[in-house]
Computed example of a mutant assay.
Amino acid sequence: MSVSHLSLVSVQPFLMAASAGTYCELQHSRDHFLTEISCFELARHTQVKLVPDCFSSLLLRCGGDFDPVMAAPADAPERSLDLPQGAYYCVRFTPLSSYALYRVLGGMREFSGRVLDARAIFPDIGELCRSLSGEPVRAQARRAINAYFDTKLRHSPIDPVVHRAISDIIVSNGSITGAGLSAACGLSSRQLYNIFRGRVGLSPKSFSRALRFQNALYRLVKPTDVPFTPYEFNYYDQSHFLHEFKACCGMLPAQLLALLGGC
């Protein structure tokens, strides 16, 4: 079975939602921006639906006619991607990367929920794509991707207010109130909203909603021996969870699991 990234949920039954680990880690290896690199293969042309996510995802194809794309953080189902047959790498970025990645576009005030041409952000990314087509070993390809983004993001600024707000939201799994978050950051609600929205692409409330959904989605597709309950993801009750999940995914959890079970 081919595996995609967690932020990609197929609208067809032959692509599986993937595991991307928990989102409690803001920092990966030497920086605060890159969290993981996953690889998947598609046996046929596939339409993939984007679902809410507070992380950014870069999609690279190993050779072929596919321009690399960057999926910006989103709090609602937005659009679908038509992916040709082939092998792909998905590069996962933390929410702190938004400031570094999207400010280079200049004047783009609203980048959330958009699929952007990655070449507008990284003009030389075509060279990386070409190098990946010649990498037979995935470990070598991951090293090449890590090295590329290490040079791009190494000296990027991190807004301390955004860092504090993101940390508090993640530690609380999205349950911290707006008033509590504002007090922790020492700002008014309006000031925090404007800073957070401008740097991350989502409001703190939308960020919390996407985070809870992604964590619940991960838990569903990677079950454990502990029974699933909506309360562990700070949903009020089962009805609230089902309503939120369908709003984010377009289907109920049981329908998604049936879809994945048929893959």
Rank of each mutant, 00 (worst) to 15 (best):
S2L: 01
V3E: 01
H5Q: 03
L6S: 11
S7G: 14
L8N: 01
P13F: 00
A17P: 04
A18S: 13
L26P: 08
Q27A: 11
S29T: 03
S29P: 05
F33E: 09
L34D: 12
T35N: 08
T35A: 06
T35W: 01
T35I: 10
S38C: 00
S38T: 01
L42C: 06
A43N: 01
A43Q: 03
A43W: 02
R44Q: 06
H45V: 02
T46K: 06
Q47C: 13
Q47W: 14
V48C: 12
V48P: 03
V48W: 06
P52N: 10
D53F: 12
C54T: 05
L58E: 09
C62V: 02
G64R: 03
V69E: 04
V69F: 02
P73F: 06
L83N: 06
L83M: 10
Y88W: 04
Y88M: 02
C90W: 01
V91H: 04
T94N: 02
P95W: 08
A100D: 03
Y102D: 03
Y102H: 08
Y102M: 05
Y102F: 15
V104I: 04
G106L: 03
F111G: 03
R114H: 01
V115M: 01
V115F: 00
A118N: 05
R119H: 04
R119K: 01
I121A: 06
I121T: 09
P123G: 02
D124M: 02
I125Q: 00
G126F: 04
L128I: 07
R130P: 03
R130Q: 15
G134W: 04
V137Y: 00
A139E: 02
A141Y: 01
A141L: 04
A141P: 00
R142E: 11
R142A: 07
R143C: 08
I145Y: 10
N146K: 07
N146C: 10
A147F: 13
D150A: 11
S156Y: 03
H163D: 09
I166P: 07
D168S: 14
S172F: 09
N173H: 12
I176A: 13
T177N: 13
G178M: 14
G178Q: 15
C185P: 14
C185I: 10
G186P: 08
L187T: 10
S188E: 13
S189C: 08
S189K: 10
L192C: 12
L192F: 11
Y193F: 11
N194E: 14
G198F: 01
G198Q: 01
R199S: 12
P204D: 13
P204H: 13
A210S: 15
N215T: 12
R219E: 12
R219I: 05
K222C: 15
P223V: 11
P223Y: 08
T224Y: 11
F228L: 15
E232D: 15
S239Y: 11
F241R: 12
F241G: 09
E244P: 14
F245N: 07
F245W: 08
A247S: 07
A247Q: 06
A247D: 02
M251L: 10
L252E: 12
L256A: 11
L257S: 12
A258D: 14
L259A: 06
C263P: 06
